[in-house]
């Protein structure tokens, strides 16, 4: 028995290690590139021979990157907030109410999620140019919300369905209004779902390259993924790989912070004990 568990542990440990290594090597490679000096960039060493922080200094000196970082953070946060709020309300209605057109709503949102985004880029480009949304924050926030909403609605309604409806009835019997019942009983229980959704939506907006590159033209609204592709080195003839790597490392930091911040709030099994199960 004991040997069986040990060998099982070894097996699983090995598998885990393979997965972790597979996922982390590209990230570490980028990190390593970002610390290398330009001449040693292509030496193929995993651990830089010649450590430098120049790449980081460089990207923060260029207005281009700082400005893009601000755009990215602003646009992703606003889009996430709106998508999560709208998604919460929609998911609550879908999981709790029986209204005409409910299956249509669910179907349409699924359709949007499946729609190839590439095919929308050209029409969106034309529309936004005509109505003056091209190269503005709003011009990116709107499509982000559109594509994030189905995701938000789906994840959230799964969470809402786990919350026993009796709790809401009980709150009403205890003297709560509909609003109070939602705020004091349902919302705290739905919080893990809301945070999970927020993380997913934020990552989606943060990582988007397609819309960012097509619907922006200047630093005014260009987000980091798009800005990276415009990077040049210190001079035109210099290889910008080091700078791009540094920027790539920098932009993963907000994601990590965001996930860590919300993950602590995602406590599994929050609804256990509500009902005899």
């Amino acid at each position: 028995m004991a040997t069986a568990t040990t060998s099982a542990k070894v097996k699983w440990g090995f598998l885990d290690a393979v997965v972790v290594v597979f996922a982390l090597i590209p990230v570490l490679w980028i990190a390593s590139l970002s610390f290398k000096t330009t001449p040693t960039l292509t030496d193929g060493n995993f651990i830089p021979r010649d450590w430098t922080l120049d790449n980081y200094k460089l990207i923060f000196q260029t207005d281009q990157f700082v400005r893009a970082l601000i755009n990215s953070i602003g646009i992703a946060l606003i889009a996430t907030a709106i998508a999560v709020v709208l998604g919460t309300m929609a998911a609550y209605a879908i999981s709790r109410l029986d209204f005409p057109g409910k299956s249509l709503l669910v179907g349409v949102s699924l359709l949007i999620a499946m729609f190839p985004q590439v095919s929308l880029v050209t029409p969106l480009f034309n529309i936004e140019r005509n109505i003056g949304l091209f190269d503005t924050w709003l011009g990116l926030i709107l499509p982000y919300i559109t594509f994030a909403l189905p995701l938000a609605i789906y994840t959230l309604s799964a969470f809402f369905k786990q919350i026993p409806w009796d709790l809401e009835k009980a709150a009403k019997m205890d003297g709560a209004t509909q609003g109070e019942a939602f705020r004091k009983v349902i919302a705290p229980l739905a919080a893990p779902g809301v945070f999970t959704t927020a993380i997913l939506v934020f990552i989606f907006c943060w990582n988007d390259f397609l819309f960012a590159i097509s619907l922006t033209s200047t630093e005014r609204s260009r987000t980091v993924p798009a800005a990276l592709s415009f990077f040049t080195g210190a001079s035109q003839f210099e290889d910008p790989t080091g700078a791009i790597s540094a920027a790539a490392v920098v932009i993963t930091i907000p994601i990590i912070l965001f996930v860590l911040f919300f993950q602590r709030r995602i406590v599994a099994g929050l609804t256990s004990g509500a009902v005899k199960g």
Partner: peptide, 12 residues
Amino acid sequence: AMVFQSYALYPN
């Protein structure tokens, strides 16, 4: 006041 079959206690 009402007592539910499922008890409907607030788990949080």
